[in-house]
Nucleic acid binder design. Sequence first.
DNA 1: GGATGCATGTAAAATGTTACATGATTTA
DNA 2: TAAATCATGTAACATTTTACATGCATCC
Lengths: 168, 168
Amino acid sequence: MAKHEAVTDLEGAMLGLLARGGPMTGYAISRAFAASPSAFWSGSSGAIYPLTRRLLERKLIAGKATANGKREATEYDLTATGRAAFRAWLLDADRAADMGFDPLRTRLFFLHLASPAQRAQFLEAVEDKTAELSSDEAQASEPPEDRPINRAWLRHRLAWIKGLKARS
Amino acid sequence: MAKHEAVTDLEGAMLGLLARGGPMTGYAISRAFAASPSAFWSGSSGAIYPLTRRLLERKLIAGKATANGKREATEYDLTATGRAAFRAWLLDADRAADMGFDPLRTRLFFLHLASPAQRAQFLEAVEDKTAELSSDEAQASEPPEDRPINRAWLRHRLAWIKGLKARS
DNA sequence: GGATGCATGTAAAATGTTACATGATTTA
DNA sequence: TAAATCATGTAACATTTTACATGCATCC
């Protein structure tokens, strides 16, 4: 698995979208990121279109003109090289085990600097908003395949928050 | 709370380090980020020194020359404005409730594309590496105040992984 | 005396954000 | 026919990474 095939997490996720539901237009990829409940990747056109160009240059994806009804568009799909790069990214347990960026965890390191009342109010608000993310309305915009994964993640996060409240 | 005081998460975390254990030199701030178990922020000098300059310009921190033994250095601490900005960042429940970036969650959306054997091997490896992060050796480099927070986070993550294995 | 740690930075490069811009098609 | 959605992009800007660079102090 050559180093020159290594992809970033955004690239890996984009290749994953194509592996799972491709071929897709740049616009569809953009919408998929924007629909994610995480605000971490905006899925803006300023991120997606330059990225598709780079992946085309590296021959990890290939474009094909299509006439979707009346509207013309370019749909992208994985090449064989792209599929290999995606698998290497997907099964990279070292990177998967990293703690990543968690805006709640980051704040907890400093939460003892706030008053007990502020802490309680904060945890209560975070718990409410987290519970909201599990609601059917919030999940309606997510792809059905993603929902159980996010649900399980949120369930464990709520358990964590409950523990924090009990110990605070 | 004026908009011009709004800080990013890296800025908030840096202000938090000073609020918790300041005053600190740029180098000490850099080491603190580098010692974090999360690889998300490298804490490189190329990130930290320009950031301290920006926060100085915004008057959220103030520098003071010190003679720490023989070695001369500049130590930074929060200003009153900086403390207010830190508190606004710390207690922002909307941002705290975001799902952030989780390299495992990101991969799970696509893990069904791998074979059952690959999936099992992957989850096993991630579980092992996650358990390692809870070990005393791994935690030795973290500040003592951070350890229980990371321990609890890792405990809930391990429960999640166990659930994934059971359902896979 | 050499390695390690403290301390501070810069330079080049890549990445990603917000905002701007255009135009076609479909739906209400 | 007006608004929303599809579709593609660029420009300016900020941030962050990797790599390079320097010099002093301390420990072995």
